[in-house]
Design a protein around this nucleic acid. Structure first.
Lengths: 131, 131
DNA sequence: CTTGACCTTCCAGCGACTGGAAACCCTATC
DNA sequence: GATAGGGTTTCCAGTCGCTGGAAGGTCAAG
């Protein structure tokens, strides 16, 4: 099948598939006589795997590791779990950071009238923080 | 004062200060005879303002808007609050998204033994999701 | 025979920096 | 006066994960 068909079956756009090939995440596929890339079911499964790992926030480097583990019959579940737990720790850090920021802005906005007057605690605080 | 001094007083690295100048976020400063950039107290205050707005997650484009509002004596607090509330909505969306992902990986990791055996629900799920 | 939808390659840009190279400037020390 | 070290200057490249666009080749339908 062509790249467009593989794209719609896997949910990964053609441009992105070519990009994954370029950076070596997936192997370069066979070509048809007209130089079009030819994919099969197995390629589509790989692309779907990648798509799901990406949607879970794994960076491409880790997607590559997951893919290698996925193909390695002798891998242990420990290796996979290690990646997953690292990803969770990373997400927890990011969530905590965003939450802190969100609350800080929330506090500021809560003290701002938001009317036609010019005085604004948000700008005041950016100018010279009180805490 | 030189860029290095302005950097340590404001918390914005020299490279970043030059970058802000390049993209037009801050004005190009006077130069000394040796072509070094010369900053004053007011520049440092501006840089600190930017630094704080950035640490609150405002993208540079919005930092520019905040800066313009900050300098505009006739601005209303409504305009500032609008930016702050948009930022909060954005953060809430991001936090919700990351939390969803975090829980999804958490579920998967919870079902994975993480031992020497090869079977792993994480890879299984990436291969073919059940939900 | 033309239209339109594919496909190919390559190059550029996003945001917000950051690193490095090559050169210049200033001060202090030997 | 040479040298070492710390600034500073410019410019170019790289990060991450794509995405858009240009210029051209290919194919099936009308």
């Amino acid at each position: 099948m062509t790249i467009g068909e593989a794209a719609s079956l896997s949910g990964v756009p053609p441009k992105t598939i070519r990009y994954y090939e370029e950076i070596g995440l997936i192997a370069a596929p066979e070509r048809l006589e007209n130089r079009y890339r030819a994919y099969d079911e197995s390629d589509v499964r790989t692309l779907r795997f990648i798509q799901r790992a990406r949607s879970l926030g794994f960076p491409l480097k880790e997607v590559g590791e997951l893919l290698a583990l996925y193909r390695d019959r002798s891998r242990t579940s420990r290796e996979v779990k290690r990646l997953a737990l690292a990803r969770i720790a990373d997400l927890d850090r990011k969530i905590a950071e965003l939450t802190t920021i969100r609350n800080a802005i929330g506090d500021l906005a809560g003290h701002c009238h938001g009317d036609n007057r010019p005085d604004c605690p948000i700008l005041d605080e950016l100018e010279a923080p009180t805490h």
